[in-house]
Design a protein around this nucleic acid. Structure first.
Length: 502
RNA sequence: GCCCCUCUAGCUCAAUCGGCAGAGCAGUGGACUUUUAAUCCAUUGGUUCAGGGUUCGAGUCCCUGGGGGGGCACCA
């Protein structure tokens, strides 16, 4: 293992501690207060102290050394724990020459230390700990990134998220907010008597979405399994079983391209409610996303990509047909054939390649003429049946299904239907998918006869929603890439390093 | 899969037309007993992503490969 000069110097300091009979990596730490509690404590008792007085009681704090300033026979340093930062004030007079020399010679930025002493307020007004004794908790061999600019290199930030988190407060904030958002979504459903469930990650057939799967093999069963691309078909089986409200927050896996909006593993929230329809589900979506925004920002509005967005419910609803008509001037219902719609789309200025099938042209019109302008929240509703093999047809228009997608900030954050519960209709739509599959469409859904069997036991009328949790987090934390809201994003392997000893 | 950009010290970044690889932070040595991007003096540190080519001379130009970013395609 090769160590840089800086690493070797730090390693020698660890050895020096051992030679003094002290541990660079002791078994245990003890602290009486977090940094946050210490700051609160002093603020509370300060009025009882004489002017410039110290807290008479001793406290013990722990944390990583994140900055320091030497000034002759005193040292100022900040330590950071999981709750905040506090300044240490170290005087040679207080701790003795040897201990002071230790801080100078053996403690580096990045080390975890423990310090005991009395709280006071400096002349500059900062609550600080006047250190009476200190010890090493963990010697860091890597120097932290540059103190002022932090870690900027995008590749290193993703590959070594730990270093990113150490040096970039914004990144720490984003992932805390991510947790707040997920907790809020979960609490919203829990409060409405939804049952949180777990369905298989390893599935013998993959379904519930159109995507290519990751494929794996179980040795003992000698059988192919697929990592789930969606939970949908299993959650619906639970509706058949009699649960009325179920949800799952979990990772889905799709073996597709990686870009700013797509990660091969991503977090999906799906929830299903018996005796509800897509209108009910729209009401829930706008409320829960709004609640998440309030939880993170304390407000119904937030800024995304420089645009102020207001999530106050209710969100406007517009049919896909109307939105495309307004955006492009094309009424796809007036062009039920591929050639006619292609010509109309191109006449409107659409960039659409030859041979694009009818439903894909509709999708392109949406993508090119509508989606980029949907900055404020809106539900697009009622999609052509060809685009939606798991959704229920509209009563007054069998060419369209009851489906909606919530759009915010120019992107979709979910997909939802009044769920198809007619087993024979579902069976025939699977067969249509099979035909596409045989024609070479690798994304077409597989025929799942067990799911048909479940529907034949009867599934109540149901509303169902899928929310792309990472997309919601990107939106509410104003992050441009899905990698910025996933702690350890998938990266290509680096070439193998030579680890042989010399 | 295709196109464009990018890779320099531990970190953040310079390096003019192809002409001695540099600074700040961090580190090391020193001064400084209320500082906070502390300050001041001195100083160490380089496979310029890898390999090849052109050239008197390559961080810089060319080729191949690798990592990363962006765009396209894919993602109904």
């Amino acid at each position: 293992m090769h160590l840089s000069e800086l690493q070797q110097i730090r390693l020698q300091k660890a050895e020096a501690l051992r030679e003094q009979g002290r541990q660079p990596y002791p078994l245990r730490a003890s602290r009486t207060h977090t940094t946050e509690q210490a700051l609160v404590r002093f603020a509370e008792i300060e009025s009882t102290l004489p002017e410039g007085g110290e807290d008479p009681a001793s406290v013990t704090l722990v944390g990583r050394v994140v900055s320091r300033r030497h000034q002759g026979k005193t040292i100022f340093a900040h330590i950071r724990d999981g709750h905040g930062e506090i300044q240490l004030y170290i005087r040679k007079d207080d701790i003795g020459e040897d201990a002071f020399e230790d801080v100078l010679k053996l403690v580096d930025l990045g080390d975890f230390v423990q310090a005991s002493g009395n709280l006071f307020r400096t002349r500059m007004g900062e609550i600080s700990l006047r250190v009476a004794s200190h010890s090493m908790l963990s010697k860091a061999l890597n120097a932290p990134p540059e103190k002022w600019h932090g870690l900027q290199d995008v590749e290193t930030r993703y590959r070594q998220r730990y270093a990113d988190l150490i040096s970039n407060e914004d990144v720490r904030r984003v992932f805390r907010q991510r947790t707040t958002i997920i907790k809020t979504l979960r609490a919203y459903l829990d409060e409405r008597d939804y049952l949180e469930v777990e369905t298989p990650t390893l599935q013998p057939l993959y379904g519930g979405a159109a995507a290519r799967p990751f494929t794996t093999h179980h040795n003992a069963l000698d059988q192919t399994f697929y990592l789930r691309i969606a939970d949908e078909l299993y959650l619906k089986r639970l509706l058949v079983g009699g649960y009325e409200r179920v949800y799952e927050i979990t990772k889905d896996f799709r073996n597709e391209g990686i870009d700013r909006n797509h990660s091969p593993e991503f977090t999906m929230l799906e929830f299903y409610e018996a005796y509800a329809d897509y209108d009910v589900m729209m009401g829930m979506v706008e409320q829960m996303i709004h609640a998440a925004c309030v939880a993170v920002h304390g407000s119904s509005t937030f800024t995304y990509n420089g645009v102020e967005i207001d999530l106050t419910p209710p969100w406007p609803r517009k049919s896909l047909r109307q939105a495309i008509l307004e955006g492009s001037g094309v009424d796809y219902v007036a062009h039920p054939d591929q050639a006619g719609l292609l010509a109309a789309a191109r006449a409107a200025g659409g960039d659409i390649p030859d041979g694009t099938v009818w439903p894909r042209i509709v999708d392109e019109l949406l993508k090119q003429f509508v989606r980029p302008y949907l900055m404020q929240p809106m539900f697009l509703i009622d999609y052509p049946v060809e685009l939606s093999p798991l959704a229920k047809r509209k009563a007054d228009d069998p060419t369209h299904v009851e489906r909606f997608q919530p759009y915010v900030g120019g992107g979709e954050i979910g997909n939802a239907f009044t769920e198809l519960n007619d087993p024979m209709d579902q069976y025939h739509r699977f067969l249509d998918q099979q035909k596409d599959r045989e024609a070479g469409d690798l994304d077409a859904m597989q025929l799942d006869m067990d799911f048909i069997n479940a529907l034949m036991f009867g599934m109540p009328p149901t509303g169902g929603v899928g929310i792309g949790v990472d997309r919601v987090v990107m939106l509410l934390t104003d992050q441009p890439s899905i990698r910025d809201v996933i702690l350890f994003p998938a990266m290509r392997n680096l070439p193998a390093e030579d680890t042989s000893e010399e």
